[in-house]
Amino acid sequence: MRVGIDGLGVVGLRVARELIATPGVEAVLARSSRKGRVELAQASLGEALRPWGDDEVPDLVVLCGAAGTHVTAAGYWLPHGVPVVSVSDDPADVTALLDLAPIARHHDTTLLAGVAFSPGLSCILARHAANALDEVVELQVAMVGAGGPGCVKHRQRLLSEHGTELRDGEWIEAPGGSAKMLTWFPEPIGARDVVKGNLTEPLLWRRLFPTATRLTARGAVDRSDRVWGRIPRPGPRSNEADPGAFVVEVQGTVGGVVESLVYAVLDRPATATAALVATLAPMLVEGTLQAGAHGVAEVVEPLPVLKELARRGVKAATFDAA
């Protein structure tokens, strides 16, 4: 298969590297809005990656560009019958991409939105947890970290904006930076404050768990971010080498008894995103996933994906209370 990658930032490069190492991938076609980026990637990854010509139609398109660019690109490729994966974590992108479902169904192809570390892998673990419960009542996620410098800035913006969450079965506003809560992530990250913001999981989880009454998402912010908010500052405040993590907690009942399951992943967000995309790529190209536009956890079984991710080095953990 030939996979087209639109956007070669930190996440795009990681996706390219992971795809090249995936059996069945003949070539990775790449394009970037930044001059010289494709040549740089080619020098690092070899001839398996090459510039994406204007008239080339790949077997799969992975959108790794900046948030806000994904909907137009997906709208172009779906009518060609090409499956599309978007790694955007922006709620506006995800909502607009899911609205493309009729186009994807009409052309008998699949669009997966929100395929990243959180959302994406967090949704797969949430569904894995939910499979062990009779009824799902409440889900919450907290995340720290981001893919690269662009993702850091974007994540910072999302956490300063108002989002939505589900409480008692009703959508309510989640003010950016509000409801600070101490959360324990796997070491070496440890305990971090997380706050609400304009995050995507509640939107995707509502489609997965329509009977759940409470859906909440939080993200970690640095102290400097809490002081300066959206005031622009020079340079990235994080780099690709920084590990990220998310913790997802699912509450429900088993046999009428209240049960709570907690899962986490500690990894570099860009690396985990790349492993997830590479795991899904063969399924999308072979057409084994349902046509339409979906969140990733809506159309894949969690266990095979988690096993393949573990094989690729992305391992989940569960919290055992003492």
Binding site: L182, W184, P186, E187, A191, Y263, A264, L303, L306, K307, A310, K315, A316, A317, T318, F319, D320, A321, A322
Partner: peptide, 18 residues
């Protein structure tokens, strides 16, 4: 003072992924 964490993280493996 924040409360102390009780318990710990355990990697999913074997039976967890069946």
């Amino acid at each position: 003072t924040p409360p102390q964490q009780q318990g710990g993280w355990r990697e999913l493996s074997g039976d967890d992924l069946r």
